[in-house]
Design a protein around this nucleic acid. Structure first.
Length: 304
DNA sequence: GTCCAGGCCGACA
DNA sequence: TGTCGGCATGGA
């Protein structure tokens, strides 16, 4: 465990760093009402997780500047699962990263200084599961984000495990094993394109048979190697590989320069009348060394 | 009705 | 190696 936390039978308390804003993170997480895998109600975040085959509903809230409280149902979980929950949340909000150097750099950067100040404390919201990250990347290719959430919602409602707590239903993202068994027609029914359906089922199969794991990607010499491996999957090109290394593998230097969202955010920040090209984005990001992922995330956030 | 959307693939020059 | 059409539909 990387943090100091105190627990009892029904809740865990995590000490959070000063450079953390639960409000900004919730804003990012609530950018679509169609998001099926977590819910934001007021200032509380609800998320279903499963550890050691036990489904657990988390309710996360910020008690004060220093403390995050994670309540869970069912209560009285064994200590090992409580530790997993604490680790899960710690990772989800990327609390291991010291953002002080990012803000020092951003203050001197003409593009980042404004977004870094406006969204102070925003963290990259990690997608823990490799399959979910790849899948979400493929779903989001070349369609608008709201429609991508519509597809995700149908996908999760159709194939994700459902559990009920207090008469409310909560879903887990579908497992690779479940999706690997599907036919293309079953995803076509949800309005996935033929190609997206094939790519998602094939990726699920590669992950299910153990040929691709998060661990194996992280064990590669560098993130460029991980991206190269990811791009061996059909349907995973440069953008998706960059996206997965950013959201799932925590590559601090991931920069999806072909991303239309990043292009639009920079167009606005730079006051351009055209979207910057990938080369132009690489040029303006020269000073963001090892903080490209955070710069990208803050710029995405500026579009919400 | 038109244009764009968190791209990728395969054909072709 | 670089460029271009097709995908297939929703949202603005």
């Amino acid at each position: 465990m990387k943090s100091t936390w105190i627990d009892n039978n029904s809740a865990i308390v995590i000490k959070i760093p000063a450079e953390f804003s639960f409000t900004q993170c919730l804003k990012f997480l609530s950018r679509s009402p169609r998001e099926p895998c977590h819910t934001v109600i007021g200032n509380k975040l609800y998320k279903l997780v499963k550890f050691q085959d036990v489904p657990v509903l988390l309710r996360i809230e910020c008690l004060d500047q220093n403390t995050l409280r994670i309540a869970f149902l069912p209560s009285r979980l064994k200590k090992s699962i409580r530790a997993m929950i604490a680790n899960y949340v710690w990772d989800w909000f990327d609390l291991q990263t010291d953002l002080k150097p990012f803000y020092r750099m951003a203050r001197k950067d003409s593009i980042l200084k404004q977004v870094a100040a406006a969204y102070f404390g925003l963290r990259i919201l990690i997608i823990h599961d490799l399959f979910e990250a790849i899948c979400w990347g493929i779903i989001g290719q070349h369609i608008n984000l709201q429609f991508a959430y519509t597809l995700k919602n149908r996908f999760v409602a159709s194939f994700g495990e459902k559990f009920s707590f207090d008469k409310e239903s909560y879903y887990l993202f579908p497992s690779a094993k479940t999706i690997a068994r599907l036919s293309v027609a079953e995803l076509r029914d949800l309005q996935f394109t033929e190609k997206k359906s094939q790519y998602i089922i094939e990726s699920a199969a590669v992950i299910t048979n153990g040929d691709l794991t998060k661990k194996s990607l992280l064990n590669q010499k560098n993130f460029a190697g991980a991206r190269k491996t990811l791009m061996e999957l059909r349907g995973v090109g440069k953008w998706t590989a960059e996206y997965v290394t950013l959201r799932c593998l925590r590559d601090p230097a991931a920069l999806p320069a072909d991303d239309v969202g990043l292009q639009n955010a920079l167009k606005y920040q730079l006051g351009l009348n055209h979207k910057p090209t990938a080369d132009e984005i690489i040029q303006v990001s020269k000073g963001w060394k090892n903080w490209q992922a955070y710069a990208t995330f803050y710029l995405w956030h500026s579009l919400i």
